[in-house]
Amino acid sequence: MLSNGAAHEGDRLKSIQRSVDSFTTNILDGLPMQRSWNCLELGAGAGSIAYWLAARCPGGRVVAVDLDTRHLDAGRATNLEIQEADVTHKDYAPGTFDLIHARYLFCHLPDRDEMITRAAGWLSPGGWLIVEEPYDLPAAHSPFPLVQRILTAYQHTYREHGADMTWARGLPALLARNALTEVAYAGNLGCMGGLEKDRWRPLIHRAAPTLLASGLITETDLTAFDELLKDPAFIDIPQMTISAWGRRPSDTPIPATPQDNVVHSA
């Protein structure tokens, strides 16, 4: 459903960047980043965070991996490497990366808890794992009946495609269970409406064919939703982003790993 080649996908990715990038980079800025760090951006999307990391770590390397890389530009930085791959089938040598970041990725993966464990193993001693995921608020709690219908269809559709949009609540505990320390977390409320702050128009447009196919909303609902978004007095909070991060202890030994299918840092 979220193929990068689908109509309006570029708009969806850019709307996410506009609304969430400053929250993400503020968290990254709070880490003791070094210019020499090797970084991994999982599910790089349209690349804004990968480009930011490449600029902050000019003496290091940034690997940006996505299932479909058509929205990524390898020419944006000399220390940027783009890899087109399914992250669930990708592996890296233990201790490869000083920083690993993922946003809006793990909730869509079938073995998301296991992927956190794998990603934690790719960290170098002292390295940081930062994971940011959506947490949907109950559709029925919206004060707007139309939004209740739209969000019910939206959340149902994502569940049908295997996503868990409430999984993020357990992220801090999951990082701690994977022996990461200095675990911390923050939340960023998502805005529906509010004119320039809204990022839901491209999200709903992108998902519209699948939402209509569910039978839970109609074309009339979608048209009415577009009109509602034009009302400067319309503001709702459908979702929040939960960001959680933790550090691999500096004294953790790097285990030996079989060499098959393992990518080593250059």
Rank of each mutant, 00 (worst) to 15 (best):
L137Y: 15
Y104D: 06
A139P: 01
P94I: 08
Y104R: 08
H108V: 06
R177F: 13
K90V: 14
T152F: 07
D136L: 11
L175F: 06
W128Q: 08
G121T: 02
G170R: 05
Y135H: 11
F106Y: 15
E114R: 14
F97H: 08
M165N: 12
T96N: 14
H161D: 10
L137G: 03
S124D: 06
A119R: 04
R159D: 12
Q148W: 06
V147F: 02
W128H: 12
I150P: 04
A179R: 13
I130A: 13
T88E: 15
Y104V: 11
Y154K: 03
N178F: 03
L174V: 06
R103T: 05
L109H: 12
H141I: 12
K90C: 13
T166Q: 11
A179S: 10
N178V: 01
Q148H: 05
T166W: 03
E114Y: 09
T166M: 08
L129I: 02
D98Q: 05
R177K: 14
R149K: 13
G126L: 00
Q155G: 05
W167N: 03
L99W: 03
A139V: 03
A140K: 12
A176E: 03
Y92T: 04
A179Y: 11
A173C: 06
D91C: 10
H108K: 08
I116T: 04
L174I: 09
Y158A: 12
G126K: 02
G127C: 00
H141V: 13
W128R: 07
G126D: 00
W128P: 09
S124T: 07
W128N: 10
P145C: 05
A153R: 00
E160N: 02
S142T: 11
L105T: 14
Q155N: 11
H156C: 09
V147M: 06
R149F: 07
A140P: 04
T157E: 13
R103P: 08
A173G: 08
D91F: 07
A93W: 07
R177S: 12
W122D: 05
A163N: 02
P138R: 11
V131H: 10
L151W: 01
I116N: 00
W122Y: 11
A168Y: 04
I116Y: 05
L105N: 09
P172V: 08
K90S: 15
K90Y: 15
A179C: 07
P125F: 03
W128S: 11
L171Q: 01
W128Y: 14
A179G: 03
E132W: 08
D91A: 14
A153Y: 01
G126F: 00
L99N: 00
I116P: 00
Y92A: 09
H89N: 14
M165H: 10
A176V: 00
D164V: 01
D164Q: 04
P110M: 15
D111P: 03
L123I: 05
R103N: 03
